[in-house]
């Protein structure tokens, strides 16, 4: 039995479905990312797990117990919001202290020690007496994380914790959050619409679209075996082309360039090059005007000596080819 079980949750706002029969299992100690486009219901799902929102139907089990109707205070979780929601009138340590009230066993001194503990974990010890407005975005984010983990919650909920930060800080914090989550062995559910974030951080990804779960799996499974064209396209880039019985799909980095004769599956006319650093993406068109992209290592692309309007010969490895029914929407 999973640590966190979400069973057939449905939630509507004024008739409009935000979640439609959503189920998911989350194991103890796992880092799960809920990934999906804006408005697909990710935040709503997180708030229902938290008890901050009430589902219209369905249930939530935590550690085997039905907690569908428990108020948030009884569920023992920590939460970090996109806005951080740090109390601006309190210092960093007071923010953390605020939630430590009813660790009943703890005396004042032990509470202080706990504050130091978590501040050490997020590396904010020397900023403890600052007010939130005196911290950078990344520091505020870490302060919010420290506040969430201080009461030793049994699981952690994060709603787009990194989306307000700039790219560099974001990448560094991914590693820090993941490190703390591992060190504590705490179950975590993180909402994001950034596929790279989900791929790098998660043990398991739940992909959502239009108020429903489309696929659940490890980052590799999701990337290599996307269940639908939507997932395939939402995570990374995917080439689609028509085939006799449906639609075929292949990642651009899986396509191999070959000579005209030896094992070529398709021929495409080269339209242009897109230098992306380590790799170069070659844009081409198949007969019947289907676009196709091929990623090759940049130094290899230089060696190829091909130009626009040249032809390229492609080999499609069967083990990486995906097939979808023609009816599946992209």
């Amino acid at each position: 039995m999973a640590f966190l079980e979400i069973r057939n949750i449905t939630k509507r706002f004024a008739g409009q479905a935000a979640l439609e029969d959503v189920s998911a299992d989350i194991d103890k100690g796992e880092m799960v990312c809920v990934l999906g486009p804006s408005g697909c219901g990710k935040t709503t799902l997180l708030r229902i797990i938290a008890g901050l929102e009430t589902a219209d139907s369905g249930s939530v089990y935590i550690d085997g117990g039905d907690c569908t109707s428990q108020p948030p205070g009884k569920r023992n979780f920590g939460i970090v919001f996109q806005s951080y929601a740090l109390f601006p009138n309190m210092t960093v340590s007071d923010n953390i202290m605020f939630g430590l009230h009813r660790r009943r066993g703890l005396g004042r001194e032990e509470m202080r020690a706990r504050v130091d503990d978590v501040l050490g974990m997020v590396d904010l010890l020397e900023h403890r007496n600052k007010y939130p407005r005196q911290l950078s975005g990344g520091q505020q984010q870490r302060a919010a994380l420290a506040r969430a983990i201080a009461p030793a919650p049994s699981y952690l909920l994060l709603d787009e914790p990194l989306s307000a930060l700039d790219a560099k800080v974001r990448v560094r914090l991914r590693g820090e959050i993941r490190g703390i989550q591992r060190a504590l062995g705490i179950t975590a559910v993180m909402v994001t619409h950034d596929q790279e974030e989900a791929l790098t951080m998660a043990d398991k990804i739940i992909v959502m679209n239009n108020a429903a779960v489309v696929q659940t799996g490890t980052p590799r499974e999701i990337y290599d075996r996307p269940a639908t064209p939507f997932v395939a396209n939402f995570i990374g880039f995917m080439n689609f082309y028509p085939a006799p019985e449906g639609v075929c799909a292949i990642r651009p980095e899986r396509i191999e360039l070959t000579g005209a004769t030896d094992g070529c599956d398709m021929v495409a006319e080269i339209k242009g090059f897109e230098f992306k650093g380590a790799v170069t993406r070659i844009h081409g068109v198949l007969p019947r005007q289907t676009e196709i992209c091929v990623d090759v290592a940049s130094e290899k692309a230089d060696a190829l000596d091909v130009r626009a309007s040249d032809r390229m010969y492609l080999r499609i490895p069967k083990e990486h080819l995906l097939r979808y029914p023609a009816s599946a929407a992209i």
């Binding site: 708030r47 938290a50 008890g51 901050l52 108020p71 948030p72 205070g73 979780f77 939460i79 919001f81």
Partner: peptide
């Protein structure tokens, strides 16, 4: 703010 407090059962 209220959600955070609720989560910490304040």
């Amino acid at each position: 703010f209220e959600s955070v407090s609720d989560s910490m059962s304040v």
